[in-house]
């Protein structure tokens, strides 16, 4: 056995990377173009389309809304998801098996169907304010990730550690915070980041729940493309990409990306 990979393997790997990277390179290039239309390779170099993002009030507003929804939705999902994941793991033997699957439903059902269902039941059904409907919708789509990631963390947590603490005189609720939570800290952080990114990038559910005056960034990008063909869209895309990469870089630095693969 030679320890050098087969040349064909290198070629295939290179092609796969090319296939993945080229669209991103084109978007970044287009975003930097000085022209008033989307073009690649960029003609002239300029950051004016990045400035333009913040000159368009719809972008300013939707960036704020997207960040608010992502942050609050993730927070609520954690508040629901952590206890749920804890119960699912702690009482794995006692609870029925399908209960765990139930929490995955929002990502098992096609998102477009889920979005439509939420529109019917929330916005049309109860007349809930748009922001609230968005928040509920996003909480629901990120909840499966939260439950899944924290469950993975708890699966390797030895619950006799919790019992040891209780036997030493620590009340159960206190034990959860002082013993269980610190030992799944990595899972909680990973869940937060994964949920945040998922919410930030969501299109299909938001499409149904946005309405007059309130929208999210990805929906605003779609709306913008329908009317304009300038590089602003490319620069917004780059911005969204940078945000995602920055978050991923933080995960990589603090926990390692393998954490997400668990």
């Amino acid at each position: 056995m030679s320890d050098r990979p087969h040349p064909l393997l290198i070629v295939i790997a290179a092609l796969v990377y090319l296939f993945l990277m080229v669209p991103l390179v084109i978007v970044v290039g287009a975003a930097l173009s000085d022209t008033t239309y989307l073009t690649f390779p960029p003609q002239g170099l300029s950051l004016r389309w990045f400035e333009n993002i913040f000159q368009i009030s719809a972008f300013r507003r939707t960036i704020v809304t997207s960040l608010q929804i992502a942050f609050l939705g993730t927070l609520i999902a954690l508040l629901i998801g952590i206890p749920a994941a804890y119960a699912l793991n702690r009482f794995r033997v006692e609870l029925p098996k399908w209960l765990g699957t139930l929490f995955l439903l929002p990502i098992l059902v096609p998102e477009i169907v889920f979005g439509f269902a939420l529109l019917k039941s929330l916005t049309v059904g109860t007349g809930a304010p748009i922001f609230l409907a968005l928040l509920i919708g996003h909480t629901l789509i990120v909840l499966p990730y939260v439950v899944r990631v924290i469950s993975a963390s708890l699966a390797s947590f030895d619950f006799s550690i919790e019992e040891a603490a209780i036997s030493l005189g620590s009340a159960p609720v206190k034990t959860f915070f002082t013993i269980v939570l610190p030992n799944v800290r990595g899972g909680v952080i990973a869940a937060f980041i994964l949920a945040f990114i998922t919410s930030l990038n969501d299109v299909s559910v938001s499409l149904f729940l946005t309405g007059p005056g309130i929208s999210t960034l990805p929906i605003q990008i779609l709306a913008h493309v329908e009317q304009f063909f300038d590089p602003t869209v490319a620069s917004v895309s780059v911005l969204l990409m940078v945000l995602t990469v920055a978050v991923m870089a933080i995960v990589e630095r603090t926990l390692g990306l393998t954490f997400l693969a668990k």
Binding site: D158, S160, I161, E163, A164, A165, I179, P182, N183
Partner: peptide, 9 residues
């Protein structure tokens, strides 16, 4: 306990 159950953190 059998598996010691020490607090890892």
């Amino acid at each position: 306990f059998q598996n010691y159950a020490l607090f890892p953190h």
